[in-house]
Design a protein around this nucleic acid. Structure first.
Length: 476
RNA sequence: GUCCCCAUCGUCUAGUGGUUAGGACACCGGCCUUUCACGCCGGCAACAGGGGUUCGAAUCCCCUUGGGGACGCCA
């Protein structure tokens, strides 16, 4: 069967993670089978839609690399066609005019609920032939009288609905605008969508849509209703939470492919494999690995996957990511070591670009802050002499590169009669301000000669101040 | 309330009648090591409960419980 999938969001806000995952599965399935992936913006609710939201949505998909086949279709541009289909249903006797007012319907539901019945339209206008003065009618679908409707779903198999549970849904509002079911079914048909992969919240809509499709004599697509994504606490994802916004992760310094990898594995698996490149995802994605239960978001796992992707990413991608995050910290990526060097030093030491920029602050800033605990522990009077010696040795170093720096530190350590590590930590604290950084030779290399010597001088002054404070008499 | 979906370590999951219930994240040890990280080795940790079916059930059926979704002239 030919594969043509679609993502059909309503542009009511940002693209959230659940939406991105739905889009991803549709995209992967299409790419896997050499089919097409279409985008339809369900913007018929003008009050909640805006051009801004539409642009954001399309841009978000692009940012994650989910390329579209064809132009995005705005559902609002299709109302003429939707009206035609409603008219056709009317002519076939599969729909009728209903003159009930919203107030009457509300009263009907209240009454039904009051006596413990299910709130649903009772079909009171089904046989009406005469118009009603002063009331513009809606067009309602005449639900067929079959016993039950069976939905075929990739994940859930056959899902059966007793027909009596369904009612006559509104197709065209009194103002002439089409409702969701009519638009959705019509557009899927006209777009030639063959696989409808969407959230579980649509499962209960499917029997109604199936009946519509049958009444129109169309061929239903295959259905796949994906389990929902839950917040870490197992509750529904809150749209208020910025962690729900897919673009948030890009801004926070995650690799798009890593986010995709993480999302793909939420509700889908392929043996024991955890880390996938996008092309691996395309090669291995399929309906067989899909799971049926809802899954929770886990930031720890996302971070780990992102780190795995960073380890394997190319230097250029990493450099860009680091530069962006350095700027966010108010630092100048040009005022420090070449980015590709920094990136090699930190690619295995950071989970995100934000982490990386944070860890690299000292290399891109003229001033550093001495961490109090680290300096108290490592910048002690006993190391003053060794530190001064290494400062001297380094100042005369011709080749400011890790190899030469390493040799220089080793020689000094030996002549001072202390271990390499005993000299390394004070050096690290002096140059970076903290006790954690890449290997000390790499660290000094990244800091550059000028900053290294300057910071060593400041560290020596710091130690002198300590000595003076401990023994005021020695000052004279 | 009615209908629908779901249910394996804390989390993501493998498992489709016979396994010491596997892997990954997190966590805890150890190794590596000039700090950190990476890497490697090891540990902790699960079939929601109750009935069936069967020689045998995490796997099949039913009930309960729990979680989620849907019941609009929203999408």
């Amino acid at each position: 069967m030919y594969v043509r999938t679609r993502f059909a969001p309503s542009p009511t806000g940002v693209l959230h993670l659940g939406g991105l995952r739905t889009a991803l599965y549709n995209w992967l399935y299409a790419r896997r089978h050499g089919g097409e992936f279409l985008l339809r913006i369900e913007d018929t609710d003008r009050a909640r839609s805006s051009d801004e939201n539409v642009r954001t949505l399309i841009e978000a998909l692009r940012s994650f690399g989910l390329d579209l086949d064809g132009e995005p279709l705005l559902q609002s541009s299709r109302v003429q066609r939707h009206r035609e289909v409603a008219q056709e249903l009317l002519e076939r006797g599969a729909a009728y005019h209903c003159y009930c007012t919203p107030d009457e319907l509300a009263a009907m539901r209240d009454e039904q609920r009051a006596r413990g019945a299910d709130p649903r339209y009772d079909g009171r206008c089904r046989e009406r032939t005469a118009p009603r003065d002063g009331v513009k009618p809606v067009i309602r679908f005449r639900r067929p009288d079959t016993e039950e409707v069976v939905v075929q779903d990739w994940l859930h198999g056959e899902v059966r609905y007793r027909n009596a549970q369904l009612d006559d849904l509104v197709l065209l509002r009194a103002n002439g605008s089409p409702t969701y079911h009519l638009s959705c079914v019509t557009d899927d048909e006209d777009m030639g969508v063959r696989q409808v992969i969407r959230g579980d919240d649509h499962l209960n809509n499917t029997p109604r849509q199936l009946q519509l499709i049958q009444a129109l004599g169309w061929t239903p697509p295959e259905y796949c209703h994906l389990p929902l994504l839950l917040a870490p606490d197992g509750k529904k994802l809150s749209k208020r939470d910025e962690a729900t916004d897919a673009l948030h992760y890009l801004r926070a310094g995650y690799l798009p492919d890593a986010v995709l990898n993480y999302l793909a594995r939420l509700g889908w698996s392929h043996g024991d494999q955890e880390v996938f490149s996008v092309s691996e995802l395309i090669d291995s994605f399929g309906r067989t690995g899909l799971g049926a239960s809802a899954s929770r978001l886990d930031a720890g796992k996302l971070n780990w996957i992102n780190q795995q992707h960073m380890k394997g990413a190319d230097a250029e991608t990493l450099s860009e990511g680091l530069a962006t995050q350095l700027k966010r910290l108010g630092l100048d990526p040009g005022d420090g070591p070449p980015l590709h060097q920094a990136v090699e030093a930190w690619r295995e030491r950071a989970e995100t670009f934000a982490d990386m920029a944070q860890a690299a602050r000292w290399a891109y800033s003229g001033v550093i802050e001495l961490d109090e605990r680290a300096s108290r522990k490592f910048l002690r009077p006993v190391v003053r002499e060794a530190l001064a010696a290494v400062r001297n040795a380094l100042s005369g170093l011709e080749d400011w590169a890790p190899g030469a720096i390493h040799a220089c530190i080793a020689e000094t350590a030996e002549s001072q009669g202390i271990g390499f590590g005993k000299l390394g930590q004070p050096l690290r604290v002096a140059v970076t301000g903290g006790a954690v950084s890449p290997p000390i030779d790499t660290t000094l290399s990244l800091a550059g000669r000028a900053r290294t010597l300057d910071r060593l001088d400041k560290a020596l002054a710091y130690i002198d101040a300590r000595i003076a404070a401990a023994d005021p008499a020695a000052q004279g």
